[in-house]
Design a protein around this nucleic acid. Structure first.
Length: 195
DNA sequence: GGTACGATGATCT
DNA sequence: GATCATCGTACCC
């Protein structure tokens, strides 16, 4: 098992392309309690200035969205309804786009994830949602601004994915036409996707 | 199997 | 004070 972070150049592709490339990659988080990692099985692309569903729509720039304007590969975490969500920043400096990681398949540190999520949860309930996977892996707002090529939170080379499905994004009913964009990607048939 | 809804807190106006 | 890129439970097929 080699947990080697990917090269920074991996993140130098378009947001939509990266959202698909991330499917099958390994999301790794190291803490004092140990390592937890999961295969990424579901992502969503948020394409910034013209995407009404993106936090950076119209180039809105605040303390929260600041990291989206930086180099690709940075980690963008933020809280939503008491949950922490994790994104990977895309596109060159000044272009604020990102990929939301919506679900992973538990791979390393299963008992640690179960401990964090509650022992009554079945395996497939641990990480099949954006708020769930951050809790299972121990990802918090402290990871905001970390680069995904560096510990303790990074992307590692993953496995082959046979087929990727495409559909509209989830949970953005108030985003005008943007809600219909085919920007959600998941590994076809994988039982750990959020829906 | 499905849908409905309330809790909950950071962020922005 | 309004707005959410959510989750879990309740309830109804």
């Amino acid at each position: 098992m080699s947990l080697v972070p990917v090269e920074a150049s991996f993140f130098g592709q378009s947001t939509v392309a990266l959202a698909q490339s991330l499917i099958g990659m390994l999301l790794v988080k190291e803490t004092e309690q140990g390592i937890a990692a999961g295969w990424i099985v579901e992502t969503e692309a948020y394409t910034g200035v013209a995407d009404q569903a993106a936090h950076s729509f119209g180039n809105r720039r605040t303390a929260r969205t600041e990291i989206m304007y930086h180099e690709p590969g940075h980690v963008y975490t933020y809280t939503m309804h008491t949950h922490c969500l994790v994104n990977i920043v895309c596109e060159p400096v000044g272009v604020a786009e990102a990929v939301l990681i919506r679900a992973v398949e538990p791979h390393i540190g299963l008992s640690l994830m179960q401990e964090r999520r509650g022992l009554d949860k079945s395996l497939h309930q641990l990480t099949n949602g954006p708020g769930k996977l951050t809790k299972a892996l121990g990802i918090t707002m402290n990871d905001y601004g970390n680069h995904a090529t560096k510990r303790p939170l990074f992307i590692a080379v993953g496995r082959q994915v046979e087929e990727i499905s495409i559909g509209p994004r989830i949970g953005i009913p108030n985003s005008g036409a943007a809600r219909h964009y085919p920007y959600r990607f998941w590994e076809t048939g994988n039982p750990f996707v959020s829906k």
